[in-house]
Design a protein around this nucleic acid. Structure first.
Lengths: 244, 244
DNA sequence: CCCGCTTTATAGTCAGACATAATAACAGAT
DNA sequence: ATCTGTTATTATGTCTGACTATAAAGCGGG
């Protein structure tokens, strides 16, 4: 019985809960490609047996992965690894907004910075495929009102296409988060989008990317953010969300 | 009992799992200030009874909140709401790196952009308190080698202090995520920090912020990133992490 | 050939019990 | 009176096992 408690106090580490430990193991399995993006995970009972944990513990791990945006679960059907990493930061960011309540201006400022950089990179790095995609989207935007269903959708895709052409997944994800937050503000009535200047601004950005002019692209985005699209009114420097 | 299944097929929405539903309810309670940051949550059994759900379901919700960085749980002690939102994006971002495997250059590029902006804002917005904090940290940095324990700690606090002075929680969080990722690269040996130029670069940034010169601050950060602190070697344009 | 039923595999949910860790209260020795 | 070791309490950690609800495939009848 001499070695019943062999671990010295200094190196003492708290044993991880099984659920958390299982999360790490699954993370690793997904990261190593054992479970490919878009593919189905084994059934809960089976996976629990494979990993040697109980189903409730496995479910805790799966729920954490779902909260992180890594998997999607459908009752009766099964669980699959998310096909893309596009949703990974979103839930966390939404929560961050809830806790920190930044002002709308802060969100717009951050977005302007990042999207300007993305546009500048896109102007340099874009290939024919990117340009073709942008052309298509701009055409759709011209064909629909900016505040229509199709117009909003094209608007979103326009910004996504720029981010994709810039070849920086990290900033692309950040941008998507900010976009979510700003969109939520607009839809909750805290700010309103002004359709008037949108077409012109988008065209300017588009033209700069086509021309391969990084500085012009950055400037066009800054202009777009500055005069607008967004009228935050009196709430401009107020924390977003409902008051506590 | 006529309204047992009143929902029409068109408005049919999938009922949320109890665990997910409970997550939303807790989010709301935290967001509304019912449970203050840093304060303890009721015990699991009690909270489960209050919310009218079983303990496993509540635990799923709590685990999701923990994965999002919103709460911290300690065996035998209890669960408390995180005192700050500093950890909220981290776990998600770590997972994003695992899935997307950006290059180190991508991380450095993003960090340079954001920190440059933060430094520029800090140069304009800083108050006496910020300047005093920066002075202290710079003094500590000069007193210790950059690769010592205390030096690394001061280095991290220096960047955090700049972010704090810039008054943009959103970008501050983004920066912290990037910092985590870059730090992980350095510690895993994929890149090495070069102590030689660090002091000079930090002093330049510090001086620009003290002088209130936004452009100089941005330029100093760019210089810091460029020549730099980081030697990524052959892995420079390789995806981070171990190969799949 | 198509529609609706049945079957089967899956996630959703709960109840209850026991194990383990952290903390506070208490009794004893110094 | 103070320090220390023990004990009691309360908290989370974990599992077993059963049952329900859903989705999708298979299958039969029209």
């Amino acid at each position: 019985m001499a070695a019943t408690t062999p671990r010295p106090r200094s190196a003492r580490r708290r044993p991880r809960p099984v659920g958390v430990d299982t999360l790490e193991r699954l993370k690793r399995l997904i990261g190593d490609g054992r479970y490919q993006p878009g593919s189905a995970l084994p059934a809960e009972r089976e996976l629990a047996a494979t990993l040697g944990v109980s189903r409730p513990s496995l479910r805790e791990a799966l729920r954490m992965l779902a909260a992180l945006g890594a998997i999607e679960t459908r009752h009766g059907s099964g669980t699959r690894v998310s096909a893309t990493s596009a949703g990974v930061l979103r839930a966390s960011f939404e929560f961050l907004l809830l806790l920190d309540r930044p002002t709308i201006d802060d969100l717009l400022d951050a977005r302007g910075l990042i999207e300007g950089h993305l546009a500048a990179r896109a102007a340099v790095l874009r290939d024919d495929h990117d340009l073709a995609a942008l052309d298509d989207i701009v055409a759709v935007m011209h064909a629909h009102a900016i505040d229509s269903r199709a117009g909003k959708d094209a608007n979103r895709r326009f910004h996504q296409a720029i981010a994709a052409a810039a070849r920086s997944t990290v900033l692309e994800r950040f941008m998507a988060c900010l976009d979510d937050g700003i969109r939520a503000c607009i839809e909750s009535g805290a700010a309103t989008a002004d359709p008037a200047t949108s077409h012109a601004a988008h065209d300017a950005i588009h033209a700069a990317i086509v021309a391969g002019d990084a500085d012009a692209a950055r400037a066009a985005v800054a202009e777009h953010m500055r005069l607008s699209g967004i009228n935050a009114g009196s709430a401009r420097t107020r924390p977003i969300g409902r008051p506590r």
